[in-house]
Structure formats: C-alpha cells, structure tokens
Amino acid sequence: MNARAREPRGPMLLSALIALIFQVVPLPDWLSIARPAFLVLVVLYWSIVSPRAGGLLFPFACGLALDVFRGAVLGEHALALTLVAFLVMRFHLLIRAKPLFEQALIVFAALTLYEFVVWCIDGWTGHTLNSALRWLHPVTGGLIWPVVFGVLSRTHRPR
C-alpha cells in the first residue's frame, strides 16, 4: 500500500489536463497540422516511467476524453491509446533504460501505431480521411519527446 501511495498520481492527472488543453487550443493552420499529440505523449511518458500510477485505466480515460473532444466514435482513441500504452508498459523497463534519442524513435513508432489504429477505425466507421498530413504528428511528436520527457520528469521525484 505504501508503494502505491508514492505513485505520482497528482502530477500525472494535472499533466494530462494541461496536455488536453494544448491539444485543443487553436493554432494557425500550418502549425496545427504539425502539432504533436500532446496527450498521447503524456500518456506514453507515464506508461514508461510509472506504469502502476494509472494502470491501463489512465490511457483508456484519456482516450475517451479525446473521443469526446474530437467528436470521434466513442472508444476510438481509447482503444488506440490503450493498445499503445499496453505495449509500452510491457517493455517499460527496457525503454526506460534507453538514451533519449532511442526513446524518441520508440515514441515515434508508438505514435505511428496509434495513428494507424485511429486511421483504421476511421475507415471502418465511415469517416475516411486519407490525407498524408495526418501522418505528420508522429514525426513532430518524436522530435519533441526529449522536451516532454525533460519537463515531466521534473514534476515528480525520480524513480
């Protein structure tokens, strides 16, 4: 029970809320196309650093919030985010030991998988959107990962 109490739940929830706001705040068109999926990055961070803080409920809830905000089919982003977080949690000890550069590559792969799942569900539910631009945010997400990691690791005691 003691170990459970030390999990950084507060910073986790607060960072998720701020990331959600970053993700829906309006930006100029050219910038918003390249905007990284902040909430997904935050979920990946907590999945790597402290998977027990939120378990799989945290990615699921964040995905549901994204569904509501984006007007998607309920469960679409929830499924994609749960899947990606599950894979990352499975290997979180391996990923945690990697240097930031390699982590960024892994994050890029995870974001691409996430977008792929969303793209598939978009197609199956009849909301096809085959723009090449939708594959841009994994790249910027991977590039910004060191910054996200640096900022978030200051919000709680190192583990």
Binding site: F60, L74, G75, A78, L79, T82, T125
Partner: peptide, 11 residues
C-alpha cells in the same frame, strides 16, 4: 479495456 472500447464503438 480493449473489449470495453470496442463495445462502446459498436454501441
């Protein structure tokens, strides 16, 4: 959780 998400989508 995956099943829950899929059920939600279906509904």
């Amino acid at each position: 959780y995956a099943a829950l998400a899929i059920v939600l989508m279906f509904l």
